[in-house]
Write a protein that binds this DNA or RNA. Structure first.
Length: 425
RNA sequence: GGAGAGGUGCCAGAGUUGGCCGAAUGGGCUUGAUUCGAAAUCAAGUGAACUCUCACGAGUUCCGAGGGUUCGAAUCCCUCCCUCUCCGCCA
């Protein structure tokens, strides 16, 4: 959520920045509602004050044994008036809130302005895509040859966009998870965290998935639970409604969780293989930081995700997403794109964002600075470190051999009982 | 799932014949006094959100959440959530 004060005082500037990400702000409606809100709120609070004073006077009169009848008569119709006023205010406030909750974050000044992914800006590249002496196969073909990847059985058990891994490939996925977690815990200072995979609506509102993107989520029956689309939701909501002591800042969480996405509106997109699934594994990085640190942290956190790719020796590039391609809650996002030889292109494998105080304001996540004073909103920064399914795809495709076997990256061998090569079983 | 108890400020813990309760008391914390310094002691201060105001300041809301009764609710009524104890079941 944006700062309501900012919207009040600099509506035109806000509208202009939002236009850069393709969002049209109904300036006139907002201004009208805000005017109504102000008038109604002042009037209602005034009535409440009157009521409070009258009630006190009646209490005193009664205590001293005076006749309260005239006082009671004077406030006879106040209740109705107040109720009507409160109802009217609530209505306007709710409409205002629902508009506010649907406004995306403002892009940071360093974000390239653009319409879609074609306007994203490449920041740097790491590693050299290798020249294969043969025609590289894609991961689906490799998986078939190795017999460890089964989409048909998954479709039977669940449906389309699900997958099943078995044998060495399943083990390699687990190795990737362990390797990522260990790296972030031991080398990057994150706290390993185990979180619920079902969350309530408040948590999803806090991070920005609700109210606008309900169709992307899997909702459980009518008990109010949703499957998490990312560990960002439970991890970030750890600090919802919390005032963090300065000495406990920053907070750094990492977790491995499955992620569930309905992928509504993605029909026909990336239907082949593991790239876009209803269920996938991800290791997530979340940092709760002081406002002045958040942009430095975005760089280091992105570096933490890059570290994994480097250790796996997978070529990648870092893209700064343009204003039009960024997610709803983000002020600035770097995507890491890994090289996939079969597709002869780079594909997203991690997304690292600074949300500034956008999520913090929705969650009322604050900290008290060392020199006291009012609690201040924290900044939240998070990123995938990394998407595990896609990492598995990248390893398979980049480490494939002419005979369809796959060399196990050195850093994963210890996690796989010393296996150096995966071949058909 | 069954039975019972309970959810109050940073913590502990009063307040349940509705009014003087944003809330006693103790602890903690901050500042000051005392001290060479510290401990102890004494004094004062110490919740959050929001609104109006250039500002000083004023006001509203919040005692798990949401409704209701009332001129007035932490206190009464209803619904829901959560915690604890015992029993059952279960990995």
């Amino acid at each position: 959520m944006l700062d309501p004060k900012l919207i009040r005082t600099e509506l035109d500037v806000v509208a202009k920045k939002l236009a850069n990400r393709g969002f049209t702000l109904d300036v006139e409606k907002l201004a009208t509602l805000e005017e109504q809100r102000k008038e109604l709120q002042v009037r209602t609070q005034d009535l409440q004050r009157l009521r409070n004073n009258s009630a006190k006077a009646i209490g005193k009169a009664k205590a001293s044994g005076e006749d309260t009848a005239p006082l009671l008569a004077a406030v006879a119709d106040m209740g109705d008036k107040l109720n009507a006023g409160e109802a009217e205010l609530r209505e306007v406030q709710q409409e205002l809130d629902s508009i506010l909750m649907g406004i995306p974050n403002l892009p940071h000044d360093s974000v390239p302005i653009g319409i879609d992914e074609n306007d994203n800006q490449e920041i740097r590249r790491w590693g050299e895509p290798q020249d294969f002496a043969f025609e590289p196969r894609d991961h689906v073909e490799l998986g078939e040859k190795l017999t460890g990847m089964d989409f048909e059985t998954a479709a039977k058990i669940a449906g389309s966009r699900f997958s099943m891994l078995s044998g060495s490939l399943a083990r390699m996925q687990r190795a990737l998870i362990q390797f990522m977690l260990d790296t972030h815990i031991n080398e990057h200072g994150y706290t390993e965290t185990y979180v619920p995979y079902l969350v309530n609506a408040d948590s999803l509102r806090g991070t920005g998935q609700l109210p606008k993107f309900a169709e992307d989520l899997f909702q459980m029956g009518d008990d109010g639970y949703y499957l998490i689309p990312t560990a960002e939701v439970p991890l970030t909501n750890i600090v919802r409604d919390v005032i963090i002591d300065d000495s406990d800042m920053p907070r750094k969480f990492t977790a491995h969780t499955p992620c569930f996405r309905s992928e509504a509106g993605a029909y026909g997109k990336d239907t082949r293989g593991l790239i876009r699934q209803h269920q996938f594994e991800k290791v997530e990085l979340v940092q709760i930081v002081r406002p002045e640190d958040s942009y430095d942290v975005l760089e280091t956190l992105t570096g933490h995700a890059e570290k994994i790719l480097q250790a796996l020796n997978l070529p990648y590039r870092v893209m700064s997403l343009c204003s039009g391609d960024m997610g709803f809650s983000s002020a600035k996002t770097y995507d890491l794109e890994v090289w996939l030889p079969a597709q002869n292109t780079y594909r997203e494998i991690s997304s690292c964002s600074n949300f500034e105080d956008f999520q913090a304001r929705r969650m009322l996540a604050r900290y008290r600075s060392a020199n006291g004073g009012k609690p201040m909103l924290v900044h939240t920064v998070n990123g995938s470190g990394l998407a595990v399914g896609r990492a598995l795809v990248a390893v398979m495709e980049n480490y494939q051999n002419a005979d369809g076997s796959i060399t196990v990256p050195e850093v994963l061998q210890a996690y796989m009982g010393g296996i150096e090569i995966i071949s058909a079983e």
